[in-house]
Simulated assay, not measured.
Amino acid sequence: MKLQEFTPQDLEGYITLATKFHSGPASFTAPDVAIFERNFDYIVNHDSAFGWFIYEEGYVCGYVLCSMMYSTEVGGLSLWVEELSVEDGFQGKGIGSKTLNSLIEMFPEVKRFRLEVAPSNESAKKLYKRLGYDFIAYEQMIIDR
């Protein structure tokens, strides 16, 4: 497994994979190309957001998006794994585990790694628990503009 950072030429590849991800049960939001374009632009132009294609055996088999922020709760940096998607044909091969472990190695300064999981995504919950992630009891509230 290898992570390849997005380059400015990778927009269409990202849009294709993000559309699949947001069309499935792991996402609560429908695919929105305008959002994907804004995400991609921010990722390739700022130091606080990251995007990588996941390669296995020479094939793009998924992607991962992260953003970094300072967390006053832990008194240090927090890396939010915003999206982690592994294509169906590559699931169950340890790619998700390797990806999350690679992020931990890539960011030794980070105090907390955080992610969300859809309540119905039992296989992802098992993976995250096996890797040491625990649930936190917060509920989130949002207001969009």
Rank of each mutant, 00 (worst) to 15 (best):
A34V: 11
F36R: 02
F36K: 04
E37Y: 00
E37I: 08
R38T: 11
R38N: 10
N39C: 09
F40A: 10
F40H: 09
D41W: 02
D41R: 12
D41N: 13
I43E: 09
V44D: 01
N45Y: 00
H46K: 09
H46M: 00
H46F: 06
D47I: 02
D47W: 01
S48L: 07
S48I: 09
A49V: 01
A49F: 06
F50L: 04
G51M: 03
W52H: 14
Y55L: 11
E57W: 00
G58M: 08
Y59P: 01
C61T: 15
G62N: 05
G62M: 02
Y63E: 06
V64K: 00
V64T: 08
V64P: 04
V64M: 06
C66M: 09
M69S: 14
E73C: 05
E73T: 13
E73H: 05
V74T: 15
V74L: 03
G75K: 11
G76K: 12
S78V: 15
L79K: 13
L79C: 11
L79V: 12
W80V: 13
E83W: 01
E83R: 02
E83F: 02
E83D: 15
E83Q: 09
L84R: 13
L84S: 06
L84M: 09
S85W: 15
S85F: 14
S85R: 07
V86F: 08
D88R: 12
F90Y: 15
F90V: 05
F90I: 06
F90R: 13
F90H: 15
Q91D: 08
G92C: 13
K93D: 03
K93V: 06
I95F: 04
I95E: 06
I95N: 06
I95Y: 07
S97N: 07
K98A: 15
T99N: 03
L100E: 09
N101R: 14
S102F: 00
S102C: 03
S102I: 03
L103V: 08
L103M: 04
L103A: 05
I104T: 05
E105H: 05
M106K: 14
M106G: 00
M106A: 10
M106L: 14
F107G: 02
E109H: 05
V110G: 03
V110P: 02
V110L: 07
K111S: 11
